[in-house]
Write a protein that binds this DNA or RNA. Structure first.
Length: 289
DNA sequence: AAGAATCTCAACCGCATGTCA
DNA sequence: TTGACATGCGGTTGAGATTCT
């Protein structure tokens, strides 16, 4: 461990959040909005660091978080997006409304990477594996190693509230229906990564979003939203805001961009084709600019 | 039934990047 | 231009739950 963690200040809580803390944070954000994470805990009466508050809100408390299983369509889309974007979880999450980057990252690590491996595909490169899959026990070794290194007393204290934490009911095994068409962005669930990542990859998202007037997104009413049925809820934001769109793209070119993106994703079925993969890679890069 | 092994996912960490004075 | 600060991101951890032996 290098520098001291941000929550190391004496008196700051760590570990699982209590229902009371959740309530305090939620109420504060409902009243004052997001942002200013550093000063928020104090103002909200929380003994937490700002980072912890932000994470809790973004990954758990936000009202638009979609709880429940990843649907097969989302599953498929995550794989396709990962083949295009790699481990850019926030970008991937931005195209799955209601899903968080943490959730997708976890889902990838626990389910999809194994699934791909079992199908003979390298999850990191999306190329065919040359050798048969051998069940790895890396994790076990790693766990043992880290457990041995950890001060057990410290961990016991750290997680002493675990049982008392705010525990969601078991995730229902439901596949929620997805929107097929959206005409107004303002009716969509909020997703920071979504808007920011479709127009830029910078961290200006929170500020951009905050300035959005009536909607929680900060997306003006000229913004158009495209939701394609094949993508099962994947949303593409087409903004008129030239500041946010590189090269001052007009609506027409952005529609082309969307079409191009669509084609690129569909073509991933054949990504064993080297040339095709190169095109995808370069296109994915272009999306990130 | 009990202990071991494995899985899941919330939360943490450090670094990268953006913002602003 | 620069440096301090704030925020976002991806990798990692580990407690509790679940499955296996």
């Amino acid at each position: 461990m290098g520098r001291a963690p941000c929550c190391s200040k004496v008196g700051l809580h760590r570990g699982p959040w209590t229902p009371r803390e959740d309530t305090l944070l939620t109420k504060y954000i409902e009243a004052h909005g997001e942002g200013h994470w550093r000063s928020m805990p104090k103002k909200a009466g929380l003994l937490r660091c700002g980072k912890s508050c932000r994470l809790r809100w973004m990954n758990y408390l936000r009202p638009d978080i979609k709880r429940g299983n990843i649907t097969p369509d989302e599953d498929d889309l995550i794989v396709r997006l990962h083949s295009l974007l790699g481990n850019r979880w926030s970008l991937i999450a931005g195209r799955l409304p209601g899903r968080t980057d943490n959730e997708i990252k976890n889902y990838w690590n626990t389910h999809l990477s194994k699934k791909l491996r079992s199908q003979g595909t390298d999850p990191s490169t999306h190329k065919k594996l040359s050798e048969p899959v051998v069940k790895e026990n890396k994790r076990r070794i790693k766990n043992q190693k880290t457990k041995n290194n950890m001060n057990k007393k410290e961990m016991a204290v750290k997680h002493k509230n675990k049982t008392g934490q705010h525990v969601e009911p078991l995730k229902p095994k439901v596949h929620l229906p997805k929107p097929t068409r959206v005409t107004s962005f303002l009716s969509l669930p909020r997703n920071d990564s979504f808007t920011s990542s479709t127009t830029s990859t910078t961290t200006t998202s929170s500020q951009d979003l905050k300035g959005g007037g009536g909607g929680a997104f900060g997306v003006n009413e000229n913004d158009q939203v495209l939701v394609h049925p094949w993508a099962n809820g994947v949303v593409f934001c087409v903004s008129d805001d030239q500041d946010q769109v590189p090269n001052s793209a007009d609506d027409h070119t952005l529609e082309n961009l969307y079409e191009e993106y669509l084609q690129a994703l569909l073509k991933t079925d054949h990504h064993h084709d080297h040339q095709n993969q190169l095109e995808l890679d370069s296109f994915a890069e272009s999306l990130l600019i």
